[in-house]
Structure formats: C-alpha cells, structure tokens
C-alpha cells in the first residue's frame, strides 16, 4: 500500500559521521557485494570492462570541498544512501503499491514483483537514493540490509547493514532513531546531527554528523614541537646576520 503508515514502531536508520569518513568506498563495495547475492534482483553493471562502465549502486560516496571565509579549504567525504524518510515522497507516487514503508521498523522497500519500472519514485526522491536496474527494469534501493539485520543464521555481530559492518573507521552507525536512549540517537543529540535538504519536508530518518571545526587559530600541526626551528640564529649564521645587518 502506498499510503504512508501513520506511525512506525521503530525508526531504523543510519547515522553517518562526516568527521570520520575517509572516503575509502568500502561501504559502496560491501553494499554492492551483499545486495548482489540475496535480496531481490542483483545489481547489474553495463559495459563493466568497456570504455563507458555504468551500474546500479545503492550507496555512493561523494567528496566535497568546502571553502571557508577565514580558514583553509576542507574536504568532506559524503556517503549517501536511502534516508528511509518518515514522509517519503517516493512511496506515495508509486502507482502499483510496489513502493512501501514498513510500519514495524520504518524501512522503505520495493516489492519487486509489483514494480513496473516507471521510474516515478526515483523522480520523487531528492537524494538520488533510487536507481533503476538497467538489466532487470526494476527500481532498486537500500533495504537497510533487511535480510541481515533480522537474520538469525548470521552471527549477532553481523546483524547490521553491510556498509556499517564493513566501515573501517566506524563512520556509519546503525540503530533505532525513535529511541532517545539508543547510541545513534545520543550521538545525534551530542554532535548536532542534521537532515539533508530539510526544506523539502521529507523528514529523513538517517542523520549526518557534521565534521568537527578545523581551521586557523588552532594549533593543528602536531609535528610543530619536533621541528627544531630556532627563532634567533646563533653561531656563524648569527655572526653573519649581525655583521650584515639583518633587518
């Protein structure tokens, strides 16, 4: 049913720490790997070894440069996957009911048996979270690894999304954002987690933690004490300076 649930028991989602992400794309690979072997149609590639490769991915990492008024430019690696919005515009536009949001945990999914591949949900999503698989003609999106997180055949440590499990720096955290005491909710509260494009009113579940402040005025050069810089030259250089009248 493409009517959004009035209430979801949980709000499962990701918290992505932009301060920690190093842009290694391991989450992109892990996501593609996991979602190629289990749930739904595999994520196809077109011309993978040719001159113009393209393919379906559910998670991608952009890299941005932010220039400040006073301070050095800053690079931020920016992983982006479905935000499992509370007011998901991709769900209500679906003509067949293939696109839906689960009332039990808030995950937005596609019932691939009902998807006609019209692409309207991808148009409705501001975040580019949905990609039409060019081989299957079916809309693919992040499932929050619904086939991992409840999977009792997996060791408990693996019952989280593949991107979270694989992230070498711990930049991605998975949890229930409706529970104010969950680790993810607390980090959002402490660090000032934010929504992407809040002006579009989608109420995303996934939250982003801002990079910590960096810039001039802070002693960020940890090697500085080790560099033996003498403010006043001594010895023969000092004698020369004195003789030649250093300004």
């Amino acid at each position: 049913m493409t009517q959004l649930p009035t209430h979801t028991d949980k709000k499962l989602g990701l918290v992505i720490d932009l301060d920690i992400c190093v842009g290694c794309h391991a989450c992109v690979v892990a996501c593609k790997g996991w979602n190629d072997q289990g749930y739904g149609a595999p994520l196809s590639d077109q011309d993978p070894y040719g001159s113009n490769p393209a393919g379906t991915f559910l998670n991608r990492v952009h890299s941005y440069e932010i220039t400040q008024e006073n301070g050095p430019a800053q690079v931020v690696h920016f992983p982006k996957s479905c935000l499992h919005c509370d007011d998901a515009p991709c769900v209500t536009v679906c003509p067949t009911g293939a696109s839906y949001k689960r009332s039990e945990d808030g995950i937005v999914l596609v019932n691939e048996d009902a998807c006609i591949g019209c692409g309207l949900c991808a148009w409705a999503c501001p975040y580019g979270a949905r990609e039409m698989d060019q081989a299957a003609g079916i809309m693919k999106k992040c499932t929050l690894c619904v086939d991992r997180i409840y999977n009792e055949n997996l060791p408990e440590i693996d019952r989280e999304p593949a991107c979270v499990r694989t992230c070498p720096t711990g930049a991605r955290a998975f949890g229930d954002l409706s529970d104010p005491d969950s680790a993810v909710s607390r980090s959002v509260a402490e660090r000032g987690g934010f929504d992407l494009m809040p002006e579009l009113g989608t109420k995303p579940i996934n939250q982003y933690l801002p990079p910590r402040a960096k810039g001039l005025g802070q002693d960020i050069d940890v090697l500085a004490p080790l560099l033996d810089i003498q403010p006043e030259p001594t010895g023969i250089v000092g004698w020369l300076d004195k003789l030649l009248g250093k300004p």
Partner: peptide, 26 residues
C-alpha cells in the same frame, strides 16, 4: 549544494570528486 550536504555552516560547498567516474541512471 549547502542544504543538500548540510555543510553550509562551514562554508561554500563544491564537488571535489564525483562518486563514480562514469555515468549512471541518476
């Protein structure tokens, strides 16, 4: 780009590196 990334409080945002070298559906 600032509201899309939520990074406008730091400064002006520009794309340094796209997520993929080729094209895609989007």
């Amino acid at each position: 780009m600032e509201t899309a990334t939520g990074l406008g409080h730091i400064g002006k945002v520009r794309l340094l590196e796209p997520p993929h070298t080729g094209t895609n559906y989007l």
